[in-house]
Design a protein around this nucleic acid. Structure first.
Lengths: 173, 173
DNA sequence: TAAGATTGGTTTCAAATGTAACCACTGCCG
DNA sequence: CGGCAGTGGTTACATTTGAAACCAATCTTA
């Protein structure tokens, strides 16, 4: 699917290599580093907010967030939706089952599949967490202007797709 | 990649056709989630690039990056500089010592402190990784215009300081 | 100057995460 | 049918990570 592009990307990268002097790296200006710090701060803060209250891990909460919008998904569907992997989903699901936040039922048409849904209790919790999560996001976004929000949205999209390319093409092989 | 399987497609359509409730959380637009996915993609790609070659973890590389610019730091100084915690630093340092990438010497004035520096070998590796790291960053940034880069820089600054406030003040109490 | 409080740093233990192997079922092709 | 490749999902194991306990040296203060 993507094999034909690898060499091209490599060449671009190599070209950049020549241009860059072995200068010092200023970690505090290095985008990957900044992204990581920012993301950790944000995620940890929010995870604490609902994790403590509802005994949810981040992956578990993500599964709930998806099931809240899209009922009747299988674990495989969740993998697709969340960009999390099989195992993470499986574990999240088992936490949610233990907490009675979701229900699981066999798919008669394909007995390997198991269809997941929020339970009564789960929807309840979901509906309490959503505003909480949104409040955090609003607070974050509140530090930006409308203009900046749009910019951020489109910038993230671009960065994401670039980073995705790396993953697909195995950049430095 | 897979054959067009009618039943599977049908299932997706069924799931997606369920009405989206007005107040649902749209995970794929939720900033904390997007930041997390983006940051993981980027970090993993880069970590693979130098991790494989030089047997370095991300924290270890961060420590090297700081020591490359600022010699004679103690572990505590590194904590301050990197926003990583004590334990992470300690482990990173022990990896780097094992690899002979750094040296450690007692501070005679305060015998609890141990002063760290890149070794010859370490500086060597450092000087090879820096361009590699920069080249990834350039590649990422290459997907943005100059304008966007400035915007991103200032947006991250704002978000960061907001998230920092959370940590300090405990937001939703 | 001795007791407690603090600081630098490491160790220990539990939880979180990733990778690979694995079972059960389905779908395909002879 | 019967075998075998592919899929959905879980389990097992190894590694990473974080929290808290810990040791040793230093600072404080009475």
């Amino acid at each position: 699917m993507t094999t034909d592009n690898t060499t091209k990307v490599d060449r671009e990268i190599n070209a950049n290599l020549e241009a860059v002097r072995p200068d010092d790296l200023r970690l505090e200006k290095f985008l990957p580093y900044r992204l990581s710090v920012l993301s950790n701060r944000v995620s940890n803060a929010i995870a604490q907010a609902y994790g403590a209250r509802f005994d949810l891990t981040i992956p578990a909460w993500r599964v709930m967030a998806i099931l809240g919008r899209f009922p009747n998904l299988s674990a495989a569907d969740l993998v697709e939706q969340t960009a999390m992997d099989k195992v993470a989903i499986s574990r999240a699901v088992s936490i949610l089952l233990k907490n009675d936040y979701i229900t699981r039922s066999e798919d008669l048409a394909d007995r390997r599949r198991q269809v997941l849904n929020l339970s009564e209790l789960g929807r309840d919790v979901y509906e309490r967490i959503v505003p909480l999560a949104q409040q955090y996001e609003n607070d974050l976004m509140g530090s930006l202007s409308d203009e900046e929000r749009k910019q951020l949205d489109s910038i993230i999209e671009k960065l994401m797709s670039r980073a995705q390319d790396w993953a697909n093409r195995g950049l430095m092989d």
